[in-house]
Design a protein around this nucleic acid. Sequence first.
DNA 1: TTGGATT
Length: 268
Amino acid sequence: MEHKKSRREPDRFYALTKKGVSYARPSSASIRDANLYVSGLPKTMTQKELEQLFSQYGRIITSRILVDQVTGVSRGVGFIRFDKRIEAEEAIKGLNGQKPSGATEPITVKFANNPSQKSSQALLSQLYQSPNRRYPGPLHHQAQRFRLDNLLNMAYGVKRFSPITIDGMTSLVGMNIPGHTGTGWCIFVYNLSPDSDESVLWQLFGPFGAVNNVKVIRDFNTNKCKGFGFVTMTNYDEAAMAIASLNGYRLGDRVLQVSFKTNKAHKS
DNA sequence: TTGGATT
């Protein structure tokens, strides 16, 4: 039988066998949760440079930098998976809040979320999506097409824009596309009340189509809404229709301003 | 009166 106390091994080995860990497989426990999420990276940083930065803390198993699907530009966010948890912990200690050489902004380094728990929001949006959409797309009616054309002109600040390019976005590749992010079309919503929460954004934008994500921006201390939020929608047509419909919409005693998100504030 | 980002 197995329990021959007289043949018990020295303490160290005994402790290992008690946990079911063998010398041949020193894995699981020590390599679990060694995956890091890194944000605030310089847009110019390559995957190789990212690895070089982190390699001083241990053996890197995988790395990734997220990029905009249309422009291919880095989103300043990446992942580093170390061989061991302790290496990841040391990398956080050493690199979180630090500025990589040549960078102007500090980076954030923390343990990554579990990818399987990603966005209950995205799952929700699937539920909202199909049956009750007010404006199914893509649009084919000529009048609606014309309105989209005008929206594009406003969004891109150009005087004329051939309607023929609306259906496909091919001619827009390489442009700085307002509102476009790696996950869809980002919409800026201004003039929310201080006690707004995410549900109001879902309710406002959900009827227009596939909503990937919503965010109410809150003050760190008071936890009150700072008056604006963001909504990311999958499809351009639906985002444009939501903007056209909700900009100027009266919510309580406030009039919303809704537009594609632009880069920061530019003075008038 | 334009964030944070989760392979």
